[in-house]
Design a protein around this nucleic acid. Structure first.
Lengths: 152, 152
DNA sequence: TCAAAATAGTTGCACATGCCACTAATTACA
DNA sequence: TGTAATTAGTGGCATGTGCAACTATTTTGA
């Protein structure tokens, strides 16, 4: 009668923390912290996004985004161009230096996925992603619905 | 050909961060931070553990454990008794105040699980836990194996 | 037996993260 | 058109987390 299902939260916590440790360890040689790789990877997919777009896509607070990009800029991995059509916002571009380590940075995530997938069938791996996606979608939706920006 | 599977890490990150936000929001009225509930829940399952046992069970750094328990003690939710048979270690006990809110604290996790499970069948929920467990086990095992405490 | 190694816990540091208040720019609308 | 509301980004603060160095105690083994 023990409600083991509560432990979904515990496993997620463990997976997140260990994943961050792994990524941080693998990337620290490049001066990239564990809080920055997610932005690099997003930009590898689509370069030139604004901070707002990155925040919204990754569901990460815009303050956190600003700080991470500041570090990436300081390390020479991104540069920010003010948009001429809206001077409030930037377009964030990867530099040559960032493109050079693309395979390595992406490889870190691939390797971590392989570590996690040990002993899982292809079908199980597909299912794991599908279920995480559903639960993540639920979490994001819930969060949005409860972000009651009360009018007046 | 886009390797969506890398995004396992992204979903885990989202689930972790949103979960922490939800838990923190629900418990802040009791003066319990999002970093402490996991220890309360572990102690509800088994009271009187040492900090080392909690750290090892939850796979959380012993420094983090020490700080979380210090806060819980300051708020009156736990008390720590030095073991007579080993004066280096404590036994951590829940107080009456902690037992009084047990259902509420556990309910937070149950509610969060329900939010995440929206639209999932019973079978999918079972599978999700099973797969998280396997991946979490892989992560923990990997971490242990690579914790090479080099002997001399 | 007693010195060295191991263990439980603490503390300081670095960093990631969310929230909030703020600025500058843009958009809406009376 | 001009003021109010909205939006993109920044900076400060609080908290959570891991790591490494440290203390006190216990265990090991020569």
């Amino acid at each position: 009668m023990i409600d083991q299902r509560n432990t979904i939260t515990r496993w997620v916590s463990l997976l997140y923390r260990y994943g961050q440790m792994y990524i941080g360890e693998r990337l620290k040689g490049h001066g990239i912290g564990k809080g920055q790789h997610i932005f690099l990877n997003a930009l590898y997919k689509e370069d030139g996004l604004s901070q707002e777009e990155l925040s919204s896509y990754l569901k990460i607070d815009k303050g956190t985004t600003a700080k991470a990009l500041k570090k990436l800029e300081a390390q020479g991995y991104v540069l920010r161009q003010v948009r001429k059509e809206d001077k409030r916002s930037y377009r964030v571009f990867l530099t040559e230096k960032a493109w050079r380590i693309k395979d390595e940075v992406r490889g870190v995530l691939t390797d971590w996925r392989h570590i996690l997938s040990d002993g899982l069938t292809e079908e199980e791996q597909r299912l794991a992603l599908e279920l995480l996606e559903k639960m993540g979608g639920n979490a994001a939706r819930f969060n949005e619905e409860n972000d009651k920006t009360p009018k007046a």
